[in-house]
């Protein structure tokens, strides 16, 4: 086989892999859009849920946002502090590598285990029960590696010459963080948080038995109340609904959820691109 043919075949194989990945995403999006679109409408988006599978998904969407934003707000300071500790305090070496390895490993833990352990720690030992607060705590821990890794990588990407210059000018570590690290990694910070939020918004297993219910509440009135979420709504309808209208409502809720996730991802890409352009100026 000639070298040219070999190159062509390898290129085709690689292209096929890329196409397959894109096609899978395209298929999922098309299926959700195709089946979910008929359910969408003003009432569906902006009214409270009715009987099983009837009514709108307003409070489910609000519940999802509550858990997602709560988790993001709780996780961000932890991720930022931990990333700063790794990049500014720990010197490169085995301790730094160990922290990274632990965080990567945390990312690999199945999310249902986060739910189980989170419920045990927060729900039982800390007595928060099945509540939106437990869900926020579980999700915050779950997205911590995603957010921390993105934040840390953006800090590590800052040219060393900037850090050296700031050091040589006698800035204290905290002044250096304010003057160089945070301004230069703002795109990574925002992207990391939004990617974490997107992951939290799409999570079902970890909150299924720690924070959410299918019915019985609309919006939590206290810290110990559970919340309705789109994820639990979809799961319950998909498993139990026999009525085609209820099944269509599940697809509609799926479309709302996936739109929410894509909005977060799109926003993170937009901010990253805008900051990349500004950094080049």
């Amino acid at each position: 086989m000639s070298r040219k043919t070999k190159d062509f075949l390898i290129m085709m194989a690689l292209g096929l892999c890329a196409l397959l990945g894109a096609a899978l995403l395209g298929f999922i999006l098309s299926a959700v859009l195709w089946r979910g679109w008929p359910a969408l409408g003003f009432d569906f988006l902006f009214t409270a849920p009715g009987k099983f599978g009837e009514g709108g998904v307003l409070f489910q969407a609000l519940g999802t946002l509550l858990l997602t934003l709560g988790a993001g707000a709780l996780c961000f300071p932890l991720a930022l502090g931990s990333a700063l500790f790794q990049t500014e305090v720990l010197r490169p070496g085995k301790w730094n590598d160990t922290v990274s390895l632990l965080l990567y490993s945390l990312n690999a833990v199945p999310t249902v285990l986060f739910g189980l352990i989170g419920f045990l720690v927060f729900g039982v030992w800390m007595d928060t029960g099945v509540s939106w607060l437990t869900g926020v705590l579980v999700l915050a821990v779950m997205i911590l590696p995603t957010v921390q890794t993105a934040v840390r990588q953006s800090m590590q990407a800052i040219p060393e010459s900037y850090q050296e210059t700031a050091r040589a000018l006698g800035l204290t570590p905290w002044q250096r963080v304010r003057a160089v690290v945070l301004p230069r990694s703002v795109a990574g910070l925002v992207t990391g948080v939004l990617m974490g939020l997107a992951r939290a918004a799409g999570e079902t297993a970890a909150i299924m038995f720690t924070a959410t219910v299918f019915s019985g509440v609309l919006f939590p009135k206290s810290l110990s109340d559970p919340a309705l979420t789109l994820q639990t709504h979809i799961l319950t309808l998909a498993q139990e609904a026999v009525d085609p209208a209820a099944q269509a409502a599940a697809w509609g809720a799926g479309l709302v959820l996936i739109s929410l996730v894509f909005c977060l991802i799109g926003l993170s890409l937009l901010i990253r691109r805008r900051n990349a352009v500004e950094a080049d100026l």
Binding site: T165, L169, G170, A279, L281
Partner: peptide, 26 residues
């Protein structure tokens, strides 16, 4: 000590800011 003992590097390093902002950085 570093404020009293300035160091200029081999390769010029300026921050992606204005000329004035760079001078008053420290």
């Amino acid at each position: 000590l570093r404020r009293r003992v300035g160091l200029l590097f081999q390769k010029p390093c300026v921050f992606p800011k204005s000329i004035l902002e760079n001078v008053v950085f420290g």
